[in-house]
Amino acid sequence: MVHNQKISQVFVVDQCFDRRTEICRSLINSDLVPQPLENLRELLGCWPQSGCILIGNGEEEAVAALKEAAAHEQVLPVFVLFDHQSIEAISDLIRMGAAGFVTWPSSGEGLARTLKALLSISEPHLAQMKDVGSARSRINSLSNREREVLRGISEGLSSKEIALQLGISYRTVEIHRGNMLGKVGAKNAIQAAKLAWKASGT
Results as ranks from 00 to 15, higher is better:
117 A>V: 03
59 E>S: 09
176 H>C: 09
195 L>Y: 01
42 E>M: 10
31 D>C: 13
71 A>V: 00
99 A>C: 13
90 I>D: 14
115 L>M: 15
19 R>W: 01
94 I>Q: 15
187 K>L: 08
146 E>T: 06
183 K>F: 01
33 V>H: 10
101 F>P: 13
195 L>F: 04
8 S>D: 10
45 G>M: 06
94 I>G: 09
50 S>P: 06
50 S>Q: 11
174 E>A: 06
167 G>W: 01
194 K>Q: 13
49 Q>K: 08
178 G>C: 03
26 S>E: 10
7 I>V: 04
99 A>G: 13
3 H>I: 02
49 Q>M: 03
156 G>L: 02
150 L>V: 04
125 H>V: 01
62 A>I: 00
131 D>H: 03
65 A>R: 00
198 K>H: 08
153 I>S: 07
193 A>V: 04
118 L>Y: 05
78 V>M: 06
42 E>K: 10
28 I>K: 14
58 G>E: 03
193 A>F: 02
175 I>G: 01
146 E>M: 14
140 N>H: 08
13 V>T: 05
71 A>E: 05
122 S>N: 07
81 L>D: 12
202 T>N: 13
46 C>F: 03
197 W>S: 14
114 T>L: 10
126 L>W: 04
166 L>D: 07
124 P>A: 00
101 F>R: 09
113 R>H: 14
47 W>G: 07
4 N>A: 05
75 V>N: 08
109 E>L: 14
157 L>H: 00
131 D>G: 15
92 D>H: 15
52 C>K: 07
86 S>N: 12
153 I>D: 02
188 N>G: 09
175 I>D: 08
141 S>T: 08
168 I>L: 05
163 A>K: 02
81 L>R: 09
10 V>T: 08
41 R>Y: 02
158 S>K: 00
173 V>H: 06
161 E>S: 06
147 R>D: 07
47 W>L: 10
133 G>F: 02
14 D>K: 06
30 S>N: 12
194 K>S: 09
183 K>D: 02
61 E>A: 12
53 I>H: 05
127 A>L: 09
115 L>W: 11
30 S>P: 14
95 R>L: 14
155 E>W: 00
41 R>S: 14
171 R>Q: 12
55 I>G: 03
64 A>F: 03
188 N>P: 13
157 L>Q: 02
81 L>S: 13
93 L>M: 15
41 R>L: 09
90 I>C: 15
172 T>K: 07
199 A>H: 06
25 R>E: 10
37 L>E: 12
164 L>H: 06
68 E>N: 08
10 V>M: 12
86 S>Q: 10
129 M>D: 10
6 K>M: 09
88 E>A: 15
83 D>A: 15
194 K>M: 08
8 S>L: 03
29 N>E: 13
189 A>C: 08
126 L>R: 07
103 T>Y: 07
86 S>M: 11
80 V>R: 06
28 I>Y: 03
26 S>H: 10
167 G>T: 03
